[in-house]
Design a protein around this nucleic acid. Structure first.
Lengths: 211, 211
DNA sequence: CGAATTACATATTTTGTATTATGTAATCTG
DNA sequence: CAGATTACATAATACAAAATATGTAATTCG
């Protein structure tokens, strides 16, 4: 029974994964993000029409890729939380990791950015979900930090802190903006801004009062 | 003599200005930034080769346009300083004005963004100069704020404050990033971040200590 | 009958060519 | 001879035709 349940809980069928794997492989060796469904199907020895049984259209396939990348980032975020003890370090490393990983992903192949760009402009479900995950995660960490007495801000100031941190660090977490500043923006700068807000939550809580 | 001096100090000849005026006029009514030197020359009733007497090449002409736009922003920055008394308000409105003005400029015509984009990717002299102007201006305001006892940070912390403010607000002042977030990022959000840093300089100077 | 394929109309991309623009040098003009 | 033009080689762009991809419906296969 548990075996059946396991197979049911698999979000993607084995076939879906194979298709995504091949799509990703091709994207990484492509000069641009112009992935062709026919090529993916051909490489897998199936007809291209068969791909459409698993993905509504090409956009859905690309969204699937972005979704995997974003989920990968989320796993790393969870790991960053597990790897650090203090809320300060958890918050810092969750966002810093995100910056560094996305940076690396984008730099790995020119086509990756094209795919991200499309998904973000479309505000695909995958992107919205990821955004919600991040905000929830950061909120949780800050809450923990407050409970532990690590941060001096009030619980009611959490939304305000989240908005500010998001605004000031989006430049380091948003794929398009990372790509735009690939040459200029360093992880060190990201850390600097993060440290500033973390220190502010520790020793200058009044800055987060709602206006 | 002073008349002669005046004419000499004119950075642009009357002809240069005419060319830039016509180029700008065309850009504003063009779907993309694909300005053609021949068209500008034709509209002015001169041969296209004549344009090359005043601008080394097409890129130089486009840089000239960006330069004018950026200088216009600088004039508005100076005005923002004159219009406000406190260093806090000067700093806030200089950057906020920049955000709002650039936003409006980009929204005015699709071609404008193309031109900005090119100049920024090229790191043209115009852009570098503008960047230096902004940093210098903000530094001056902060210095004044310190002198007046409005900000509590130390003079030695000015560089640190400038870097942080620049990092956290570039999203609101960088044309490409403004364009990217034209739909999402509001002036209100920009103000929020600015207010945060200004308040921090007032009441939490220790946050700006060098690490 | 479910899983996959081929067949097909429409959209998109590629390709080769004609046209037009760029930038420079030679030439003209007042 | 400074100020501008025309003339020209090279580079970029626009365009039309052919080729290819997408997405769906009819068809085949096990």
């Amino acid at each position: 029974m548990s075996i059946q349940d396991d197979s049911i809980t698999l979000a993607h069928s084995a076939e879906t994964s194979r298709i995504l794997d091949e799509a990703e492989r091709q994207i990484l060796s492509l000069p641009t993000g112009k992935l062709r469904v026919v090529d993916v199907a051909a490489a897998l020895g199936m007809s291209h029409a068969n791909v459409y049984r698993f993905f509504k259209n090409r956009d859905a396939l690309l969204d699937g890729l972005v979704d995997r990348w974003l989920r990968d980032g989320e796993v790393r975020a969870e790991k960053a939380i597990a790897d650090h003890v203090t809320a300060s370090n958890q918050l810092k490393h969750v966002l810093l990791n995100l910056h560094v990983q996305t940076r690396a992903k984008i730099a790995s192949a020119p086509g990756v950015m094209d795919i991200y760009h499309r998904a973000l402009n479309k505000r695909s479900d995958a992107v919205e979900r990821h955004r919600a995950f991040l905000i929830q995660t950061c909120a949780g960490i800050i809450e923990l930090g407050i409970e532990r007495g690590e941060f001096e801000i009030e619980r009611t100031q959490i939304p305000s802190a989240l908005i500010l941190i998001e605004l000031a660090t989006r430049k380091f977490t948003h794929p398009v903006l990372i790509s735009e500043g690939l040459a200029d923006d360093t992880p060190e700068e990201a850390e600097r801004v993060l440290t500033f807000f973390i220190e502010a939550m520790k020793s200058a809580p009044h800055l987060f009062e709602q206006s």
